[in-house]
């Protein structure tokens, strides 16, 4: 049976941690998470990894495989040339807990602050498929936080203080475009979620395992909605004169 060489990050801090190398037998159709489980089951029961469904439905097993933010359960081993070392590291953007596990609780704090779904009082709950197709794309999100990990505003600039991150723009796009939602989150997006910090470099879209077009379908439409409210002089002028359109 062919063997893969897995270089896995081990440790409870990034400074003191190190890569350990394991040899793992490779079966057909195997994914990186299988290799990690093999290590746990046969070589090193203490190796920490977060996982749940192993089916790319829960978004728990996010890590960086050969430097690229990936779901381990979806990353097939046969993607890598035989004999090449495969490095597996924890997400860079979040504080390390141990080995491959990071503390992603910041994301849950952000989520709490988003103005929730608020249906129009007169809603009769009839709406058409074409009205919700956009929203359904956003609701495919499995909260793996790979987009949050790869986004340079969080990853390189560490602007967790002002920036909600792609995951939550996706969530807010789903709320804003819901045909029966009554709220307008433009101000929240601009002033509290830091939408303007996004420079649409699209890495979030590249890593999304659910293939949500985060930038084109969520972030840019939200940016345009913010423009309507805060940057378009003509629209703002009309709004001043005629009130809310």
């Amino acid at each position: 049976m062919p063997e893969a060489i897995m270089k896995v990050f081990r440790g409870i801090s990034r400074e003191a941690g190190e890569f350990k190398t394991y040899k793992v037998p490779v079966e057909e159709g195997m994914v990186v998470l299988d290799a990690i489980h093999y290590i746990q089951g046969f070589l090193d029961p203490e190796l920490s990894v977060r996982w749940n469904c192993k089916a790319a439905k829960c978004g728990s097993c996010s890590a960086e495989v050969n430097g690229y933010p990936s779901l381990m359960c979806k990353t097939r081993m046969d993607r890598f040339p035989e004999g090449q070392e495969i490095t597996v590291e924890p997400l860079k953007t979040f504080p390390l807990v141990k080995d491959l596990v990071t503390d992603v609780s910041w994301n849950y704090e952000v989520n709490k602050k988003i103005p929730p779904f608020t249906p129009k009082p007169d809603a009769d709950w009839t709406f058409m498929q074409e009205d919700i197709e956009r929203v359904q794309e956003f609701r495919k999100c499995i909260e793996c936080f790979l987009c949050q990990d790869v986004c340079h505003v969080l990853r390189d600039h560490d602007r967790k203080d002002v920036f909600a991150g792609p995951r939550f723009f996706v969530r807010m796009a789903g709320l804003e475009m819901h045909p029966l939602d009554a709220l307008n989150r433009a101000e929240f997006l601009k002033d509290h979620a830091g939408l303007g910090f996004c420079n649409i470099t699209k890495c979030c879209t590249e890593v999304c395992p659910e293939e949500i077009h985060i930038t084109d379908n969520a972030i840019i439409p939200l940016k345009e909605r913010v423009v309507d409210e805060f940057y378009d002089p003509v629209l703002m002028f009309f709004k001043k004169i005629f009130g809310k359109s």
């Binding site: 469904c53 829960c58 978004g59």
Partner: peptide, 11 residues
């Protein structure tokens, strides 16, 4: 036991 929103119901 897991993160919120990861429970088996998602499957």
């Amino acid at each position: 036991k897991s993160l919120l929103g990861k429970a088996h119901t998602v499957m």
